[in-house]
Amino acid sequence: MVSSHLQLRWFPLCLVALSILWRSIEAQQVIAPPPAVHGTLTFNITNDHTIRVTINNPPINLFNNNLLDDMLSFLTSLVPSNRATPPPKVVIFSSSNPDFFMMHRDVQGIIPPLVPWKLQAINNYISITRYLQNITTTVFIAECNGRAFGAGNEVMVQMDMRFAGPNASVGFFEDGLGVFPGGGGQQFLLELVGKARTMEYVLGALQIDGPTGAEIGWFNRYYESADAMTRSIDDLAARISTFPNGTVNATKSGLSWRNPTLEVLEADIAEFIRLDAMPDRAPLEEMFLNVTKNETATPFEMNTPLNMPELYV
């Protein structure tokens, strides 16, 4: 048997070895994922532990199945058990389009009847929103300098931080189509701005700008310059990346008790699917596709929530 004296001598050496091993793991540079299959996302490493993801899905960054697949594939790659190297400590989402950050789901993909491929797309979308919460080893930051309506806004409010540039404009319009933000968006907005304001903006299908969003808590902060916003977010990401992986995971995990329960979120999507099958849905969605010229950069899509009453004229 090893004497207690020898154990005491070896113990500090073991601590040193573990410390060196831990520092070597921490020092590993994050490896950028392979190019997105559909080309709607591009990836750039801004420091050893941060990936900047640029959304580019012309003409309006519509959350169609191409963007859906690329987002799901990327987020799946960040799950620690799916990786041979440490995940990035910070992921920043931005857009190459000065007018659109991330827009709504492709209405053609949810219009009744909900055939199997449409239901699968809904489930994939829900997986994206869950990953944003359940991957606690990575902090997700939205750099919003364009429009984020519907599902794009829903995904954004479920990220860990949101910052607004001069072109930022956000809102939910789903109630105007006879459904509601069914992927958990209204529950997470509730946490940001409170129940009364959530009711006001969701039920009214209202639209707000960056300064207003920052004032009420939809955004962390508003910037009058897009360049200033990018520099500030990059500085914040670099600062977070300086600290150990464990602190990122512990902080995000420790705050997750504020998230809605899985039961609430599952009930939410079940109700969305029920409403989506209602016979009054299809005429509204057909009108929506008509006035948006199949979801292109029309004046209607530039201010989607604001323009929803036009469907009822």
Rank of each mutant, 00 (worst) to 15 (best):
L78C: 10
N66G: 07
D160I: 03
N134M: 06
V179E: 01
V157Y: 05
F101K: 10
F93S: 07
M103K: 05
P86S: 09
P58M: 12
D99A: 12
R52Y: 08
F140S: 10
G182W: 01
I128W: 09
P88L: 11
G171D: 12
Q187R: 14
N65R: 07
L132K: 09
P113T: 00
G185F: 06
K118N: 07
N64M: 08
I126Q: 14
L192I: 06
F173T: 02
N65L: 03
T129A: 15
I135M: 07
P88S: 06
S73A: 15
P59N: 08
Q158K: 15
S73R: 13
N56C: 13
R147M: 05
Y125G: 13
N97P: 09
V155R: 07
D175N: 13
L72W: 00
Q108G: 13
A121Y: 10
P98I: 05
V157E: 06
G176I: 08
I122S: 06
M161H: 15
E191C: 08
N145G: 13
D99R: 10
S81N: 09
D106H: 04
A168E: 02
L62D: 02
Y131T: 03
F140R: 07
L75D: 00
V157F: 06
K89V: 07
P88W: 02
I51Q: 04
V53G: 06
G165C: 07
L119G: 00
M161C: 12
Q158W: 09
I110K: 00
D99V: 01
P87N: 08
G171P: 04
R83W: 02
V179W: 00
V91A: 13
Q187N: 13
V139S: 14
P87C: 08
D70W: 01
T54S: 15
F63P: 00
F173K: 03
V90A: 11
S95G: 05
F149D: 04
V155E: 04
P113I: 01
V115S: 14
I111W: 00
N153I: 05
G176K: 08
V115Y: 02
D106A: 08
G109I: 00
V139W: 06
E154R: 06
G171M: 09
L114K: 00
F63Q: 04
S96P: 01
L62R: 02
V79R: 11
Q158G: 10
F173R: 03
S77Y: 01
A148W: 05
T136Q: 15
L78F: 06
